Simulated assay, not measured.
Amino acid sequence: MSTTPPPTGPIPGFAAVVPAGGVGSRLWPLSRADRPKFLLDLLGEGRTLLQATLDRLEPLAENTLVVTGERHAAAVAAQLPSLGESGIVAEPSPRDSMAAIALAAAILERRHGPIVMGSFAADHVIRKQGAFDAAVREAAEVARTGKVVTIGISPTGPSEAFGYIESGDALAGADADANAGTAREVTAFEVVAFTEKPDAATAAAFLETGRYFWNAGMFVVRTDVLLGHLDRLQPTMASGVRAIAAAWDGPGRAGALATIWPTLTRIAIDHAIAEPVAAQGGVAVVPADLDWYDIGDFDSLAGLLPPRADGVTVLDRDQPTAVHGAPGAVVIGGNKAVVIIGIPDAVVVDSGDALLITTRAAAQDVRHASAAVEAASGFSAP
């Protein structure tokens, strides 16, 4: 029996949804409420994280919706001119990921009938496009059977920074094409449970079992299945997003948003759908080695940037940068010479109106100090 060659072209009846929210407060002062990290070219590659996400999804999706805040809609439109007005869903206020994804599902179903949709964050980095394509295509196939499907990231170590997906039994065999006499291996597993970010010892124990994957928040599901689960688990949200979607492409959009949106429960999709549906046996995971990164702080960002010959990582600056006794230093932005002496793994970030000095080990704590500075100075709060 021969192996089916990798498919090409958009997945029939598949839409991509890109929630573009959050501030990235650990990346202050680069990322703020008025210029969140998904709108930034953090890797110096000429494409923002949002643009790179759409580049990755364009070969796969027949339709794409970006869900973002009203204050960022114009910037999103400017960065993605080919998306068009109908491809941007602007939220009047943050209601967490479930409301954003549910509204997108309801709009898509209103426009196209029940279809398969995939939700992918706007600020992740994926280096292996081919592996991503294959994982999304398999997830879409499994989703057609009625499962909620998540793409599980093959862990590279016992990280405390991510949630975990526990896999169970493999889904049945292969997807065979009787007419062509070919078969493609199915790698999906049933999901037993989702676990929030564990401590180091628990994460290490997870990895020893070989059953756990990192949870990157990628979900693929039929729109009618998603909204059907919401009917049972979050009925107010289900009816609310359907009512907004019914008015979305007409003159009643603003009124529906003003009246209904503030009443929707503020909850993440993990808690609203993934966890309870997994407990009922309704979730599957497609494992994938994507070379995936969530740029959560300056330490993780530095790990994605090539250092100079002296080991210093420099981004978005052309002024002199010198170190002595400061291995692993990271210097971003600024129009002045920077000298670092005797501070290993130092981080210096100059955004023009704010200056951050920390270390890579303390990078996770940036959000605490930056919040106080923003509140005291009148800058945009992270």
Rank of each mutant, 00 (worst) to 15 (best):
V136M: 10
G250L: 08
G342M: 04
L40C: 13
A178L: 14
G255S: 15
R222Q: 07
A268L: 06
D316H: 13
D169N: 08
A268H: 07
L80W: 10
A161C: 05
M218G: 00
I269P: 02
F298I: 10
S351R: 02
L356M: 09
S159E: 06
H271V: 14
A243V: 05
I165E: 03
A174E: 15
T150N: 00
G210H: 01
P114W: 05
A135N: 11
I269F: 07
A140Y: 02
P10K: 11
H112T: 13
P235C: 09
I244L: 08
G282Y: 04
A329L: 07
A245T: 10
G157P: 02
G228H: 06
V348E: 02
P94G: 04
D96K: 15
G168I: 14
S97H: 08
S31P: 09
G113C: 01
W248R: 03
N335C: 06
P320Q: 10
A203D: 07
P327F: 00
A256T: 08
L315V: 12
E190L: 14
A178K: 03
G113T: 06
L108W: 04
D297H: 10
A326C: 09
L226M: 04
A178Q: 08
Q280G: 09
S239Y: 00
Q51E: 15
V312S: 03
G252E: 14
D34V: 13
A178C: 02
S2N: 13
V17S: 04
V241Q: 01
Q280V: 13
P36F: 08
A134Y: 01
R95I: 13
A258K: 13
E185N: 12
V225K: 09
R253W: 00
A354Y: 00
A205H: 04
T195F: 06
I88H: 01
M237E: 06
G255F: 00
V17R: 05
F206Y: 10
L227Q: 01
K37M: 11
G152I: 11
G168L: 10
A247M: 04
E190K: 14
P287F: 03
E58T: 15
G22C: 02
A75G: 11
G210Q: 03
D175R: 14
G168A: 15
V23D: 09
E196A: 09
T4P: 14
A200K: 06
R47A: 13
D133Q: 08
S119L: 02
A329M: 11
G342H: 04
N63K: 15
G21M: 07
G130S: 10
N63W: 12
T209N: 01
A183P: 12
G334F: 03
Y164E: 02
D310L: 06
F132T: 00
D316R: 14
V286Q: 01
A121H: 15
G44H: 06
A15N: 12
T359Q: 03
A256F: 13
H229V: 11
D310C: 07
I295E: 09
S97V: 12
S377T: 15
G217S: 08
D345G: 00
K147L: 14
A102P: 05
G157F: 03
G87E: 10
L83S: 12
P320N: 11
T202G: 01
G250F: 08
N335H: 04
A77N: 06
G118Q: 07
A106V: 14
G46L: 14
V347P: 07
